[in-house]
Amino acid sequence: MDKLLAYKATVPATLPKLNYEYADLEPIISANLMSFHHGKHHQTYVNNLNTIYEQISAAQKENDVQKIAQLQSGLRFNLGGHINHWIYWDNLAPTKNGGGVFPDENSPLTKAIKEKWSSYENFINIFNTRTAAIQGSGWGWLGYDTVSKTLRMFELSNQEMPEWSNIVPLLTIDVWEHAYYLDYQNLRAKYLTEVWKIISWTEVEKRYIQAISG
């Protein structure tokens, strides 16, 4: 769980370094889109988050409870923008590095996916249908429910985050327009079909094994 805990423990926040170059995800996601999405959009969340951290610190010193309360909405939104993107970048991989390749039949993740959805293909079809239907901006998620001890598919709007107390995030796909519009325009469904070609199932499997190990 060390890596998953690290997603929550970044004060001050810093833009995460990617495990690949911007151009490495082409042709699925262009270097141009990546430069905007990671280098500008995500950086803005980081900048905003650090500003809010400073404002909260100042308000605490002044014992200004009202100011602290006013900052909570912005804190949650920008923290969500930072953490959600960080998880998303880490569950992508260039095809030359194994992106899109499913774990083998003996993988604990494969067995769990098949038990719940019968196949990876069926899982992806259901995931895409649900995620494409998100109104406005949001994220499609696969998580491990630590209470029911099962995989769970769900969607969150805007920059809401999974409830970390009982959900371990395994995989997420960003369906804010800035995640795909430069390459796919208004064709969200096409983006969702293509992005699975660069999903790092190795990373998803690693998160799952960590999750079930407690």
Results as ranks from 00 to 15, higher is better:
residue 114 K to F: 06
residue 148 S to A: 13
residue 75 L to H: 02
residue 146 T to S: 09
residue 129 T to K: 14
residue 74 G to R: 04
residue 88 Y to V: 00
residue 142 L to R: 03
residue 126 I to N: 08
residue 127 F to C: 12
residue 144 Y to C: 09
residue 103 P to F: 06
residue 84 N to S: 14
residue 149 K to T: 04
residue 76 R to T: 05
residue 116 K to F: 02
residue 123 F to L: 13
residue 129 T to V: 13
residue 114 K to Q: 14
residue 93 A to K: 09
residue 103 P to R: 04
residue 127 F to Q: 09
residue 79 L to R: 11
residue 115 E to L: 15
residue 100 G to A: 06
residue 96 K to G: 00
residue 134 I to F: 04
residue 125 N to V: 03
residue 72 Q to L: 06
residue 119 S to P: 10
residue 96 K to C: 05
residue 111 K to F: 01
residue 112 A to M: 04
residue 72 Q to G: 00
residue 85 H to S: 09
residue 85 H to R: 15
residue 82 H to M: 14
residue 128 N to M: 08
residue 147 V to W: 01
residue 128 N to H: 02
residue 87 I to T: 05
residue 123 F to Y: 10
residue 138 G to I: 12
residue 95 T to W: 02
residue 88 Y to W: 13
residue 79 L to D: 02
residue 69 A to Y: 02
residue 87 I to M: 09
residue 69 A to Q: 09
residue 75 L to K: 00
residue 82 H to L: 15
residue 77 F to E: 15
residue 144 Y to K: 07
residue 69 A to I: 10
residue 121 E to T: 08
residue 87 I to W: 03
residue 131 T to Q: 07
residue 78 N to I: 08
residue 134 I to N: 09
residue 112 A to Y: 01
residue 75 L to V: 00
residue 123 F to K: 02
residue 115 E to T: 11
residue 143 G to M: 03
residue 89 W to C: 03
residue 90 D to Q: 15
residue 100 G to P: 05
residue 128 N to C: 12
residue 138 G to F: 09
residue 115 E to I: 07
residue 105 E to G: 05
residue 149 K to A: 04
residue 119 S to Y: 08
residue 114 K to W: 05
residue 107 S to C: 10
residue 96 K to D: 09
residue 106 N to Q: 14
residue 115 E to H: 13
residue 98 G to N: 05
residue 88 Y to K: 01
residue 122 N to P: 00
residue 129 T to P: 00
residue 136 G to W: 03
residue 117 W to R: 04
residue 94 P to C: 03
residue 101 V to Y: 01
residue 128 N to T: 10
residue 149 K to N: 10
residue 100 G to H: 03
residue 144 Y to W: 15
residue 131 T to V: 14
residue 120 Y to E: 06
residue 148 S to E: 13
residue 137 S to Y: 07
residue 115 E to A: 15
residue 88 Y to D: 02
residue 135 Q to C: 04
residue 97 N to L: 13
residue 80 G to E: 02
residue 90 D to L: 04
residue 112 A to K: 06
residue 69 A to H: 04
residue 114 K to S: 15
residue 82 H to N: 13
residue 82 H to F: 15
residue 109 L to N: 03
residue 127 F to Y: 15
residue 70 Q to G: 06
residue 99 G to I: 12
residue 119 S to T: 14
residue 74 G to D: 06
residue 78 N to K: 05
residue 122 N to K: 15
residue 132 A to K: 12
residue 85 H to M: 14
residue 88 Y to A: 09
residue 69 A to V: 10
residue 140 G to P: 07
residue 81 G to H: 10
residue 78 N to Y: 13
residue 129 T to L: 14
residue 121 E to Y: 05
residue 69 A to M: 08
residue 77 F to D: 11
residue 92 L to W: 02
residue 121 E to L: 10
residue 122 N to R: 13
residue 93 A to T: 03
residue 149 K to V: 00
residue 99 G to D: 05
residue 91 N to F: 10
residue 119 S to Q: 06
residue 129 T to I: 11
residue 108 P to S: 11
residue 130 R to I: 08
residue 95 T to P: 00
residue 96 K to R: 07
residue 118 S to L: 13
residue 101 V to T: 08
residue 111 K to R: 12
residue 86 W to T: 15
residue 137 S to D: 11
residue 93 A to L: 08
residue 99 G to V: 11
residue 99 G to Q: 05
residue 131 T to Y: 06
residue 95 T to N: 05
residue 116 K to Y: 01
residue 101 V to P: 00
residue 129 T to G: 11
